[in-house]
């Protein structure tokens, strides 16, 4: 399958979760018929542009990310494979379009998408999804509605060759699906370990405490120092790995926390260091 030329670059660090992209998509498609690109999007239930809220950590150290997900316009689209009669096609520009006539009755198309980006329209009896606003692009528009509505340019859209520098910094969602999406993400949330260190006597926050993080398998340890709130943090970690932390500073007994199985981000309970006697 020929690689298309259009890509989305979504910078999660710039997305504030305003849902303008979602609403702009509704504005364009709800009860609008754009033959042969798409039938009307139903009033409820379809999120052709979906925005997921991802919360990491525990009180009082919590981080929030938002992940906008249009159709991934895959390089190896499973929806095309699951369709009959050419109901789903990947265009030269890479956008994947479901034909609103030919796709009638083909529920398998919905199930085929590993990203769950395809929705069933009960009334029209067809699968539907983001079209990348192909009908507008073909009419001379530069970008889809979602991109236009984004107040922070968290979503970029354009030709692959023009955006190649950003693509190099980015990653795909679930690359293990092997579908090679044309949507690239910068700043996807990973896993973190964080904590706060206090003096066991005065209860004050301890600054400049050295914190060392090691993986069980011999990897280079990471170190950091606590800030004025006694806070430390290691972000960008891999989930489902085993970690250990050592906390040490002059005048106090060190503390080691071993065998931390990091399933999701952890904001540890406060750590109180005992003064050396």
């Amino acid at each position: 399958m020929e690689m298309g030329s259009k890509v989305f670059i979504i910078d999660v660090t710039k997305c504030t979760g305003c849902f303008n992209c979602f609403i702009a998509c509704k504005d364009e498609f709800a009860d609008h018929h754009w033959p042969p690109y798409s039938g009307p999007q139903p009033e409820t239930g379809h999120h052709w542009m979906k925005v997921d809220e991802v919360e990491r950590g525990q009180f009082p150290r919590v981080k929030l990310s938002f992940i906008p997900q249009p159709c991934q316009h895959c390089g190896v689209p499973r929806c095309v494979k699951a369709s009959r009669n050419g109901a789903v096609c990947k265009r030269k520009d890479g956008l994947v379009i479901i034909d609103p006539e030919r796709s009638k009755g083909q529920r398998k198309i919905v199930e085929a998408c590993p990203y769950s980006r395809i929705y069933w329209n009960d009334e029209l009896n067809i699968p539907q999804k983001c079209t990348g606003c192909a009908h507008l692009l073909d009419d001379g528009w530069e970008v889809p509605r979602c991109v236009e509505a984004c107040p922070t340019e968290a979503i970029l859209f354009g030709d692959r060759k023009n955006l190649s520098k950003l693509i190099k910094k980015a990653e795909q969602l679930h690359p293990e699906y092997g579908t090679d999406p044309s949507v690239y993400y910068i700043g996807l949330p990973k896993v973190f370990i964080a904590g706060s260190v206090y003096c066991g006597v005065s209860q004050e926050c301890l600054e400049n405490v050295r914190v060392t993080l090691t993986r069980r398998i011999n990897r280079n340890p990471r170190t950091t120092k606590t800030n004025n709130y006694g806070d430390f943090e290691f972000d960008g970690l891999e989930a489902n790995k085993n970690y250990s932390i050592k906390i040490e500073t002059k005048g106090y007994y060190p503390v080691s926390l071993n065998d931390i199985q990091l399933i999701k981000s952890i904001s540890m309970d406060n750590i109180y260091l005992q003064k050396r006697i």
Binding site: C18, A24, K26, D27, A30, A149, P151, E153
Partner: peptide, 16 residues
């Protein structure tokens, strides 16, 4: 300032 306006989602929902 960027060359665009940043309006809120409820204004974008005006058609509905």
């Amino acid at each position: 300032p960027p060359i665009r306006v940043g309006i809120p989602p409820f204004t974008l929902s005006s058609r509905r």
